[in-house]
Design a protein around this nucleic acid. Structure first.
Ligand code: FES
Ligand code: FES
Lengths: 162, 162
DNA sequence: AGTAAACAGGACCCAATTAGTCCCGATTGG
DNA sequence: CCAATCGGGACTAATTGGGTCCTGTTTACT
């Protein structure tokens, strides 16, 4: 099945959660809010930080926060942060426009066209879209606390605090 | 890394090869022409057949052939044939427009939008595109036999017979 | 009819990848 | 100085995917 990593799904959940109340929070806190195991959250946040999606502050009272507004973070960004470059085939590994063995390969860059198409498709949806959706959903349909569940995983639950 | 299966890459190579000289050929023959191990080819062809991309004739002298013109077979078709439904997250498992737990999930179908975008992107490139590319490439650049190599794999080689 | 060439389906194993855990060093606020 | 917290990376467990094989069925050809 053609799908994204579980960690990518986690990442969207975490980021959406952060985006909704834009304050600094620790991995610990995130783990509690999302139900994702703490060590996994820690690992995840490292990736997101390295990719420049979240800012981190160290030391006591430190934690993570978005370093761009949610509307400037696309699904493609998240995928690339967690899984590395979007490259449907190994030949387009570097994620730029050149196939590395293009001169020899007869499929000759055709996969790149597909790659590009997919990448741009993934760039069209931003976190902000998802946040909005979550917000309106939470209020319109339920009076209950909004719940953020990774699409892939059923155990992760965000209990809306305050 | 966000990528397609190796088998999917194989599949494109095999299909392109078949498309170029549209005759019936056995798995055995395909294996020889592509350099992909015979048992793997066999497995692959079964998937492609089940998905209705190739027609098979049994018995001695039997084999496979395309059952639609190459221009009506998209990359999306190939991926779906080999890997199953294109569903970036488990929630959209069935590959239709409905998320199965949409009523409960706050990300609420947003992944479907991404899914759809990706699917349509993958539908834009057809085998015919790739075949053309291969043909012109083979003639223009080399006088040597055209070689079809899966982008992912370096060992598979098609020796242009006749 | 008999035989050999092929496909169909599925069980199965091994390798590769991914998910998840843990530890230790570096920072920083109190 | 101490406690909280991030950063990097090593390591293990779980899952997936690649690849093989076996058994049965269909069909052409002699
Ligand atoms: S080198 Fe890119 S398609 Fe082959
Ligand atoms: S049910 Fe589809 S996004 Fe959650």
């Amino acid at each position: 099945m053609f799908k994204v990593n579980k960690l990518t799904d986690y990442a969207t959940v975490v980021l959406i959660d952060i985006a909704r109340t834009d304050t600094v929070r620790s991995s610990q806190r995130i783990a509690e809010r999302t139900g994702i195991p703490m060590p996994t959250v820690a690992k995840l946040m490292k990736s997101l930080h390295r990719a420049g999606l979240v800012a981190s502050t160290r030391g006591a009272g430190g934690g993570y926060s978005l370093c761009r507004p949610a509307k400037d973070i696309s699904v493609a960004d998240v995928i690339q942060a967690v899984e590395g470059p979007i490259a449907l085939t190994a030949c387009a590994d570097t994620s730029d426009e050149e196939c590395n063995i293009q001169k020899l390969c007869p499929v000759q860059g055709k996969w790149n066209r597909v790659n590009t198409a997919v990448r741009s498709a993934l760039s069209e949806v931003t976190l902000a879209d998802m946040v909005d959706e979550v917000a309106t959903f939470g209020r319109k349909t339920f009076d209950a606390p909004a719940v953020v569940t990774p699409a892939v995983v059923t155990s992760a639950v965000v209990t809306e605090v305050r």
